[in-house]
Simulated scan of single mutants.
Amino acid sequence: MPDSTAPYPSSALPDAAEMRAGAVLSIDLGAIQANWRLLQARLGSAACAAVLKADAYGLGAAQVAPALAAAGCENFFVAHLHEGIALRAHVPAGARIHVLHGCFAGTEAECAAHDLIPVLNSPGQLAAWAALGVARGRRLPALIQIDTGMARFGFTEADLKAAIADGRALAAIDPRGVMSHLACADEPGHPANAAQRARFDALRALLPPLPASLSASSGIFLGPDFHYQMARPGAALYGVNPSPGEMNPMRPVVRLDARVIQLRDVPAGTPVGYGHTARTAGPARLATIAVGYADGYPRAGSNTGAAWFAGVPLPVLGRVSMDSIILDASALPEGALHEGALVTLIGPQRDIDAVGADCGTIGYEILTSLGRRYHRRYIAAEA
């Protein structure tokens, strides 16, 4: 990522659009590619897919998808049908796009028209997809999801056995694979991981042999027994640590630099921000920056965490407002910071997971909440 001491996130001078923006979100496409390659290497012969739901976790599927395709990714996952339709224009013609939520009733024809592969989660979805295939005289591709212990998506054991016993709907589709999802993969020692894997093996054995997928980001790091034929990483591609409590093996992808709107010197005991939840302990220099909870920096980050400038932490003081945050810039030398300068909220000193911890949440939520008001700078892909 760019040098943390530079006045702007790269050596290039800012353009007019960047100067108008209250903050700059830098997104390193080369780092996303490197993260995908690292995960693919760890998977060995298993395929490494990429989850691009929620607009590639908020970073822009139109930019991220071509970079991943250039790195060699051929399988993509989204949550909703409309995400898959939009993604189709940004990946090669032969790329496989899977829709995790399957098709809502009445949307099956649209899904097929855009060459998307639904993940069938229920008997109703299976029946509707099979009926469309029968009407068109061909078996349509799909993945089958089994619930192995999360009570969220997928066929229950009873559902699966009933579908197999009947046989007609399963015979009318082209099943490309069977999948499930781990509930506790970010806790390697949790007994649910082995229990879900055992249940996955038992239930998929009821079906004809099919390629299997159980793991997302954290599951890849549980070892080869969890890899099967394909894994579906999402957050790890974007720099979130897949192994909490251990050193993050992924390259950082995002950096958030906010512009200073105003500087002021205040005496000791000055109340700061809404509700006067903070007061200055001594004479202080305050810096108000142009990021707030409307930009995805949570209000829960009030009076915790910090921004950084020239390697110096500038603690958040008072409540996070809709459009602004007040920082204590007293530790900086006189004249070091000026109005219009950029300070770093997410970057080398404080990564996405640490900011999540500051705000009482996880890096996933911070990442996917980053707002649309930022000026976005994409750092070029490596391939």
Rank of each mutant, 00 (worst) to 15 (best):
A61I: 02
Q63P: 07
P66A: 11
A67V: 05
L68N: 12
A69M: 14
A69Y: 13
A69S: 15
E74S: 09
F76H: 02
A79L: 12
H80P: 00
H80A: 14
L81P: 05
H82D: 15
E83P: 06
E83F: 04
L87R: 07
R88I: 06
A89R: 15
H90I: 03
H90W: 11
V91M: 08
P92K: 13
A93N: 13
A93M: 13
A93V: 15
A95F: 13
R96E: 09
R96P: 00
I97M: 12
H98N: 08
V99W: 05
L100S: 10
L100K: 07
H101V: 00
G102W: 01
G102P: 02
G106F: 08
G106M: 07
T107N: 10
T107V: 01
E108D: 08
A109W: 03
A109L: 07
A109F: 04
A112T: 00
A112Y: 03
A113C: 01
H114G: 01
H114A: 13
H114F: 11
D115S: 14
L116V: 04
I117M: 14
I117H: 12
I117E: 08
P118E: 06
P118M: 08
V119S: 08
V119C: 13
V119Y: 03
L120E: 07
N121I: 06
N121W: 00
P123F: 11
G124W: 12
Q125P: 02
Q125A: 09
Q125R: 10
L126H: 04
W129C: 10
W129D: 07
A130E: 06
A131L: 12
A131P: 03
L132N: 01
G133S: 04
V134R: 14
V134S: 03
A135S: 08
A135L: 04
A135N: 03
R136S: 07
R136E: 14
G137P: 00
G137V: 02
R138H: 04
R139M: 00
L140E: 05
L140V: 02
P141N: 07
A142N: 00
A142Q: 00
L143Q: 09
Q145V: 01
I146C: 09
I146F: 10
I146G: 05
I146H: 01
I146K: 01
G149L: 11
G149K: 13
M150L: 15
M150P: 00
A151G: 02
A151T: 09
F153N: 12
G154H: 05
G154W: 02
G154E: 06
F155N: 10
E157I: 05
E157A: 15
E157H: 05
D159W: 09
L160P: 04
L160Y: 07
K161L: 15
A162V: 07
A162P: 05
A162I: 03
A163F: 12
A163P: 11
I164S: 08
I164P: 12
A165M: 09
D166G: 15
D166M: 12
